[in-house]
Amino acid sequence: MICFASFPATSDASGSYGTTRHHPDVEDDVRMDLDEDDFEEGVQRLTVPGESITSSHAFMRGHGTYVDDEEVIASVAGTVERVNKLITVRAVRSRYNPEVGDLVVGRITEVQPRRWKVDANSRQDAVLMLSSVNLPGGVQRRKLESDELQMRTFFEEGDLLVAEVQAFFADGAMSLHTRSLRYGKLRNGQLVTVPPILIRRLKSHFVSLPCGVDLILGLNGYIWVSKHVKQSDQEGEEGFDAEAVYSNKNDEIDDATRAAIARVSNIIKVLASHFVPLTDAVLLEAYEWAVDQENSVKDLLADETGENLVASIGLGIRP
């Protein structure tokens, strides 16, 4: 009874979906109820909000689902995952969902009494307590009143830092810590933001590319691209050098390194726009391709070059 008028075809995007279209009556949903064997190995099931997944008697509901009328129903669009009796739906793109132990890159948004607020691409700003940072003058020492008064000498609004998720507060906000020599303030580089789902958990999120560029792949989708720093320099003599750790000054960066940093950043942007999960191997291959093309760094961002780049590594969204 109700159908669509094919008028007017203004946009050529209309052909981009639903190549085969049936009459609405034919296309009626095949509602599937899941049995045990419906979750076969390697078979991915996609779902959309409001779609019934299974009955709630046999299964437990996890993230991305809710129970209504004894049915487990999806609340986000993504892939259905099952662990034993637990059904979860993983959204294909969403904000960062923190877990304890994750490495994140963040930006200070606010200085409050005995704590900093950090933007980490999550649903709330993260909290970095004064007691969970390394204080100058010895790695392990109690915080003093004088430290509270000079918090801005450690981190100011706008400063970038790398930290680890330590715990959660009752309302779900995350608490960070930087009590490691690898963590702390970031300098000598630039920040690139990608969807968090593109960054997978790796053995190490500190990556050194052979082109003299270091990467910190924050699980929240923030990536720090910086000049390579030798491991020995990083740690300092005593193991901790407050001057160097909380410094706001960049080191001298030569032109070649600057170009390399910009090239890597642009490659990450291109790969992210084609939804390619980032690994060191993919980045390296893309970097080699980019150098071979002998284009200038900014040309990488052109649509055509980007598509060639992604095609050359054989990944990305296929039309």
Binding site: Q44, V92, I197, F275, V276, G316, I317
Partner: peptide, 17 residues
């Protein structure tokens, strides 16, 4: 249909990578 199509495309890209 539109949401499904986008989900398939993005999940496909992630899986390939």
């Amino acid at each position: 249909a539109a949401v499904k199509e986008r989900t398939v495309a993005l999940v496909g890209a992630i899986d390939a990578g």
